[in-house]
């Protein structure tokens, strides 16, 4: 099936939603009347699967950014419920406030004790407002760092979930040193003496994401992205037109496969057919297995080796040539 690159994700999803509505009607009718519609139902289910696969496997980068921002996409609060057997939230940065945009706390999967740091967006409007749509303030970054130091002290591996459009652009955020908060976090995380697995579960919005994701392994869900600037912001700068975000999304190489080619992302985690929002519990299960095996692997690496590898990874990111020819000589 050909996908129209100009269509928004919402438009693309319309036929699926219609098919699903028909399926529901059939199921209800069959249940209510006792008429056997199994063949018809199976046929429709197959058709839905086919359409879903056709649409979601051929999305453009911009459509995938929209998928990463999908209102029904599971987010940190969902994953806390779906993945962990226990979660004790620890709040506050001890200086200024508690930033609800970032959840921090003790978490358990079976016997595996972890420290969770997760940017949360919320799934209802009320929650979204409370969590500031996933945009952290400096106190959030300071909280995350303070809690990571607790994890370091007591030997708990850190798992972080990245999902933010970016660090919050506001007056208070600047007054309290947004740039300094992010810089300090990067500075400390680069050498924190505990295994750290970071997973981008939706939006990896620039410095706002980086403030919690300097890790031994940086992984990403199939329909998540990481970018230096939002496609809209990039388009506004390049062409003074934020509606050209689709072009910018192409250029920025922000989708998982491209990021892996650039040496930034370690693992890409597959989502259920059609994206995480179509089957959150399955997504939770996939993530749970991935987290358990990856953390165990990181724990098996001696700490000095782990820190060396973390350092090496970031030391080597960058592409340049070393040539005299371009320069005429300054002094």
């Amino acid at each position: 099936m050909a996908i129209d690159p100009a269509k928004s994700l919402k438009e693309l999803e319309t036929p699926i939603i219609e098919l699903e509505k028909r399926l529901n009607d059939l199921l209800e009718f069959s249940k209510r009347t006792g008429v056997n519609l199994d063949d018809k139902i199976r046929q429709l289910e197959d058709e839905i699967k086919f359409v879903v696969r056709g649409i979601y496997s051929k999305l453009t980068p911009w459509q995938r950014v929209q998928l990463a921002r999908h209102p029904n996409r599971p987010e940190t609060t969902d994953y806390i419920r779906l993945i962990f057997d226990d979660f004790i939230e620890l709040k506050g940065d001890r200086y200024f406030a508690d930033d609800p945009a970032c959840a921090c706390g003790l978490a358990k999967i079976g016997d595996l004790k972890l420290f969770l740091i997760g940017q949360r967006k919320g799934s209802t409007m009320e929650a979204r407002l409370k969590y500031n749509f996933g945009s952290m303030h400096p106190e959030g970054y300071r909280k995350a760092l303070r809690k990571m130091e607790i994890a370091e002290k007591f030997g708990l591996p850190v798992i972080s979930f990245v999902n933010t459009p970016g660090a919050y652009p506001g007056i208070g955020a600047e007054e309290r040193g947004q740039a300094w908060a992010i810089a300090e976090n990067i500075f400390e995380m680069s050498d924190i003496k505990i295994p750290h697995l970071s997973i981008i579960i939706g939006e990896g919005g620039s410095g706002g994401a980086l403030g919690i994701c300097v890790a031994d392994k940086l992984s990403i869900l199939e329909n998540a992205y990481l970018s230096v600037i939002s496609p809209e912001g990039c388009a506004a700068i390049l062409w003074k037109d934020s509606s050209k975000a689709d072009l910018a999304a192409n250029m920025l190489k922000l989708v998982p496969e491209e990021l892996r080619k650039l040496g930034i992302i370690d693992d890409i985690i597959q989502e259920p057919a059609g994206g995480a929002h179509r089957n959150p519990s399955k997504m939770g299960e996939i993530l749970k297995n991935y987290i358990v095996s990856t953390i165990k692997h990181l724990q098996s690496i001696p700490l000095d080796k782990l820190l060396e590898r973390r350092w090496e990874k970031y030391r080597n990111i960058g592409k340049f040539i070393e040539e005299e020819s371009a320069v005429a000589g300054l002094y």
């Binding site: 810089a183 500075f187 680069s190 410095g207 970018s227 700068i237 250029m251 930034i264 030391r315 960058g318």
Partner: peptide
Amino acid sequence: GARMHEGAISLMQMVKTSQAVRKYRS
């Protein structure tokens, strides 16, 4: 800030430089 023309590679230069400062200062 981070140069958008080099995408997420630029973003990662924030880590690269910060960890260089850390090693030096420590």
